[in-house]
Every structure is written in C-alpha cells, then in structure tokens.
Simulated scan of single mutants.
Amino acid sequence: MKVKMLEVYCDSSYNENKDSYIGCVVLRDSIQIHQSTTKVRGDPHNNLDCELAALDFAISLVRVFSEGDKEIIIYNDSTEAVKAFQGKTGEVEEEFPESRISFEYIPREKMYQAAADSLSKKFPVFFSSTVTCNVESFSRREDILSDIAGNKSNVFYLEKVPEMSSNKKTCYRLVIRTMERILSDDRFYSIKKGGPGTQVKAAEEIRGDLSNPEILSSLKSKGIRPENSYFLLTDETWGLRGTDSQACSILPSSIPHKIICDEVDRSPQNLFKRAERFR
C-alpha cells in the first residue's frame, strides 16, 4: 500500500526597506497541488527572519492541505532555519497526530526549491505546475537506440510551423514516427503567446488530446503505439525542460514512456542517424 505523502517546499526573499515575500510549492504523492507567493508579515530584520517565517507559513499550508498524510516533509534551503524548526518537530506533530513530520534542508538548485525561490521573488512559475519526468540522454544509450531501431518504438516530437505562426501565436505540428516512417503529422496546435510559455501550453493541450479515448483510438488505427514510446525533447521544445534534468512531457503520465534528448544535437535527424547502426 502506497504511503500518502505531503511535501512543502518554501523559500523567502528578504528585501531591506521593502516588502519581503515567501514562495511555496506543495506536492501530494509527487504531484504538485499548489503554489503561492505571500508577503512576510511584520518587520523582518534579516534573511533568517524571513526563512523562519517561510517555514511557519509552510506549516499553515499543511493545515490546509493535509488529509491525514502518513508522511509530511517541509523543505527549506537555510540550514539555520531548518535546524531551528527541527527542534520543534515534536510540538508540530502534536497538531497532526496521524502524520510523521520532518523539516529538511534542500539546495536551492533542486527543481521544486528553485520554483519556491522564484515564487518568493514574485516570478510566476508555470513549468513546475505540471507533472515532470526525468530526461534521459540517448547519446550513449544503446538500449534506447536499439529499442527504437529494432522494436519499431514510437517517437513523439513537436515541430514549429513557421508559415502558420505569427507575432501573436506559435503553431506546432505533432509528429509521431518510427525508425522507418512517419505515422502521423497532421495534428496542429496553434498557441497564443503570453502568460505561461507557449511550449508548456502546447504540452497541456496535447496531453489532453492523448488522454481522449476517441483521439487515442484514431491514432492507434494508424498503427501508433503510445505505450513504451519516447518523447524527443528538441531545441524547439527546450522550454519544457526544467532544472534537475526533468521536463514536462507532451504525453500523459498514464501512458508509460520516456523523455529523451541529446547533450548537443537534439534533432530527430540525429536520433535516427544514431539508431541506424542498431537496425
């Protein structure tokens, strides 16, 4: 039985003689359910005051989102602030008797902590509001290349369509192919610029389509096998990549697949050229 887990990543930005802010990201079972930017109350005198306020605010979010989770972890990138709250663990656990609570240090470079840091600076975070997967390089992965070459595994990727794009929108073509041939390239997504990144919004639309049974049935009638397929992250969709070698996929998490790229040349041509020797 899977243990229910609630995680809160919090960070703050201290601004002397100006308002300071807290950024928080909340996850349940590794799926983000909330993000927010909140003004630090009172008159903080230094960065530590702000980090302590961030941890305190994270506890208030636990009160809001806790559903009797067995494990609750609150992260912050200040060792001093985390140490102070670790001393209060027993006191906090009294408020949540069904849960085990811990306060943990985490480097700011980690993806969700980086998102909390961005939120504390009042920068919106669009990428981290979606489910992400690890990105695997195919450069030296013979298993990936041989799977694509020998098992006719499907590769999904997006191409920009310049003639259908403008200053106000970007058009992407969804290409699905095997080593031998293109199976589908007639689905287009015209995304209005502004707000969340166009690539993120395109991914959201495509995931919605690939979760639609009717559309999936239509694709499968063309010989497309979404399960155990690959989403190729190209230069044109590099905006889907976050920190920590993770990226937002265009395939829903219900379909088993991998996200792949190359360190230097992320083009489809490079992928299939490398796979050619495994045919």
Rank of each mutant, 00 (worst) to 15 (best):
Cys133Arg: 10
Cys133Ala: 11
Asn134Ile: 05
Val135Tyr: 08
Val135Ala: 13
Ser137Asp: 07
Ser137Gly: 02
Ser139Gly: 01
Arg140Glu: 15
Arg140Thr: 14
Arg141Ser: 12
Arg141Trp: 02
Leu145Ala: 03
Ser146Met: 04
Ser146Glu: 15
Ser146Phe: 07
Asp147Thr: 14
Ala149Phe: 07
Gly150His: 06
Gly150Pro: 09
Gly150Phe: 02
Asn151Cys: 13
Lys152Gly: 11
Ser153Gly: 12
Asn154Ala: 14
Val155Tyr: 05
Val155Thr: 09
Val155Asp: 08
Phe156Cys: 10
Phe156Ser: 03
Phe156Thr: 01
Phe156Asn: 02
Tyr157Gln: 04
Tyr157Phe: 15
Tyr157Lys: 02
Tyr157His: 15
Tyr157Cys: 04
Leu158His: 03
Leu158Thr: 03
Glu159Val: 12
Val161Gln: 09
Pro162Arg: 12
Met164His: 09
Ser165Gly: 10
Ser165Thr: 05
Asn167Met: 01
Asn167Ile: 04
Asn167Ala: 06
Lys169Ala: 12
Cys171Tyr: 09
Cys171Asn: 09
Arg173Ser: 07
Arg173Thr: 03
Val175Leu: 01
Arg177His: 06
Arg177Ser: 08
Thr178Pro: 02
Thr178Ile: 00
Arg181His: 09
Arg181Asp: 09
Arg187Asn: 14
Arg187Met: 08
Ser190Glu: 14
Ile191Gly: 05
Lys192Cys: 00
Lys192Tyr: 04
Lys193Phe: 00
Lys193Arg: 14
Lys193Ala: 02
Gly194Trp: 05
Pro196Asp: 13
Gly197Leu: 12
Gly197Lys: 11
Val200His: 05
Val200Arg: 08
Lys201Phe: 05
Ala202Asn: 12
Ala202Phe: 01
Ala203Ser: 07
Glu204Gly: 10
Ile206Asn: 06
Arg207Asn: 07
Arg207Ser: 06
Arg207Leu: 03
Arg207Ile: 15
Asp209Pro: 01
Leu210Phe: 15
Ser211His: 09
Glu214Gly: 00
Glu214His: 04
Ile215Ser: 05
Ile215Lys: 08
Leu216Arg: 14
Leu216Ala: 10
Leu216Cys: 14
Ser218Tyr: 12
Leu219Asn: 06
Leu219Ser: 08
Ser221Thr: 06
Ser221Pro: 00
Lys222Arg: 14
Gly223Pro: 00
Gly223Leu: 12
Arg225Tyr: 10
Pro226Ala: 15
Asn228Asp: 13
Asn228Gly: 04
Ser229Arg: 10
Tyr230Val: 02
Tyr230Met: 02
Tyr230Arg: 04
Tyr230Ser: 04
Tyr230Asp: 08
Tyr230Asn: 01
Phe231Val: 12
Thr234Trp: 11
Glu236Lys: 04
Glu236Val: 06
Thr237Gln: 01
Thr237Cys: 10
Trp238Tyr: 12
Trp238His: 08
Leu240Trp: 05
